[in-house]
Amino acid sequence: MRTLLLSLAILAFSPRAHAETPGDKVIKQMDESMTRAKDQHFIHRVVTQEPGKAQRTLVMDVRIKGDEWRRIDFTDPGDIKGMKILILSLDQTYVYLPAFRKVRRVAGHAKEQGFMGTTFSHDEMSIVTYGPTFSGKLLSEDKNSWKVEAIRRPGKSFRHKRLVFTIRKDYKQPSEVKYYNEKNELMKTETRTDYTCSGNVCQPKVLKLVDHTRNGAWSKIICDKWEVNTGVADSFFTVRALQRER
C-alpha cells in the first residue's frame, strides 16, 4: 500500500505531470503580457460587415480585471443600450437586460449563440487568458514571431478545439489567430494590428475577425479609448453592480 502511495506521489510530482512544453511557455508569456495591467478600460466600436449589406456598428464599454473578470456595457445602438454582460469565468456569465430590469445567469449552452450579430462568439469575446483552457505546441519560430498550436484541454469548454497563434515576439501578443473546428476545418481568422503601449502594457488598436462560414463576413473591434490601471474596484464586477444605474 505504501509503495502504491509512493508511486502515485512520484507520478504526481514528476516533471512529466507538470511538463511545460515550449508552446505552453509561449502561451504563458502571451497570457502574462495580456494581463500585465491590474485592470484595463476600453471603449470599443464594433463594426460588422456582411457581403452585400450595410455595415452595422455597436459601441461597448469594456473593463477587464485580473485573469478572468470582464464586464461589457453596451452604449449604442439604442436597442441594446443599457445591456450589460459580466463574465466572472468561462462558466459563470451574467447578463443584465434593461427591458426586464433583471440579471439573468447565462448557462454554457448560450455560447452557441453569436455575439450580438457580430462574427464573434461568446467564447471569443469572453476569454482573457488562454493557458488554462489550451495546451500549446510550438510549430515554428522566426526572429519576429512564434507559431503556436493550441489544443483545447480535456474537460475544458471552448467553442473551438484548435487554435493556431502567430505571436509577435516584440509584444508577446498575437498578430493572428486561426480558429479550427472539431473536424479541423478553418472557421475564423482573427488579426490584431496597430499595437500601442502604455508602459509595459500593450494592446492592439484594431482586431478583425473574419468568419469563413459566413461568406467572409467580418467584424472589426476598434479601440477608441484605452486606459490602464484605473483602479476599478472588485465590486464593479458583481451581480449587484450590474443592477446599479451606473
Binding site: 462558466d91 445567469r105 447565462v106 448557462a107 454554457g108 448560450a110
Partner: peptide
C-alpha cells in the same frame, strides 16, 4: 436557484451545460 448542469456532457463535448432555474 439558478445555474447550469451538464448531465449529458459525458456523452459528447458538443453537449453543453443546460441552464436551470
Amino acid at each position: 436557484m439558478a445555474g447550469q448542469v451538464n448531465l449529458l456532457g459525458w456523452l459528447s463535448s458538443k453537449i453543453k451545460p443546460i441552464g436551470y432555474r
